[in-house]
Amino acid sequence: MQIKKQLVLREIAGDYALIPIGDTIIENNGLFSLTETAARIWELLPQAAGPEELVDTLLEEYEVDRPTLEADVTAFLAQLGELGIL
């Protein structure tokens, strides 16, 4: 999946954040806080063909049912879309 903005994922004292770099600093005032699962989705995004592939990979890593995970992935991707990140 195509990430449109320059953001770097960092773990800071057990918390995850997307930190803007380059031109993205001007567009975004601050960083984006992520849950552990959202951080994992972010790591998988560049290689994922689409949401279904993200769900399939995450199902192997987390103990969660498919409908819940599909809803969570869809919601996270929608938020990234609203922010112009995807």
Rank of each mutant, 00 (worst) to 15 (best):
P20W: 01
I25P: 00
E53S: 03
P46I: 02
G50M: 01
A38M: 12
E11G: 02
I21V: 14
R40C: 02
F76H: 01
L45P: 15
F32T: 13
A48L: 08
W42P: 02
D15I: 13
K5I: 05
E27P: 09
T74A: 14
E61G: 06
L34P: 13
S33P: 11
P46M: 01
I41V: 03
E61Q: 12
N28D: 12
I25Q: 11
E52Q: 14
A38G: 10
S33M: 13
V73Y: 11
S33R: 15
G84S: 03
Q79H: 12
N29M: 14
W42A: 02
G81H: 13
L77G: 00
P46K: 01
L59S: 05
F32E: 09
T68A: 07
L54F: 01
E82N: 14
L18W: 06
Y16N: 05
L7K: 10
D65M: 03
V8R: 11
L7W: 09
I21P: 05
R40P: 07
E43H: 10
L86Y: 03
L77M: 04
A71T: 15
T68G: 01
I21T: 11
I41G: 00
A75S: 13
T57C: 08
V73H: 13
V55F: 05
R66N: 04
E70H: 08
A39D: 00
Y62E: 14
R66K: 11
L54D: 02
D72Y: 14
F32M: 12
A78F: 15
A38K: 13
E63G: 10
S33T: 12
T68H: 03
L18T: 13
V73P: 01
P67E: 01
K4Y: 13
Q79S: 11
L54K: 04
P20H: 03
D72G: 13
Y62K: 09
G81E: 15
P20E: 01
P67C: 02
S33A: 14
